[in-house]
Amino acid sequence: MEHHLVLRVAAKLLIPPILLFALYVQFHGDFGPGGGFQAGVIFGAGCILYGVVFGVDNLQRVVPAGVVRVLSAAGVLLYAGVGVWSLLSGGNYLDYGVLAADRVHGQHLGIMLVELGVGTTVSAVMIGLFYGFTSLRP
């Protein structure tokens, strides 16, 4: 898409706010609308927009396919790991209340961590699907 100047300039302007908005949705999801799923797809969509306009190879330089594969598993592991952590802390599986000194603070911590895991997996899977489709040759 090298010859689409308007598209390139518009994408350059749009991609940083999209990624920033994804992080806002991720970490402000406790207080406003949003959460890990939404943040993950918005972050993935921002990266995919970069890949569509500036080429998949440039996107692969930013987020290599191997990193995407590792991250998509790491999110699930982080989520399940929080459950194991709460088991080891003496609570039930995924009972975040025991993660900190008082229950409400522990719930906050647990929710933030599992939402981070959800966001990581979702965005990595979305980018991975994009790589999968674009790596095919007709």
Binding site: D30, Y93, Y96, V104, H108, I111, E115, V118
Partner: peptide, 20 residues
């Protein structure tokens, strides 16, 4: 839970198994 967004607290805490 101490989280104002009920959707988040249901999704991540009350229904944590489902979300996993």
């Amino acid at each position: 839970i101490g989280v104002p967004n009920v959707v988040t607290s249901v999704l991540a805490s009350y229904r944590g198994y489902d979300t996993l």
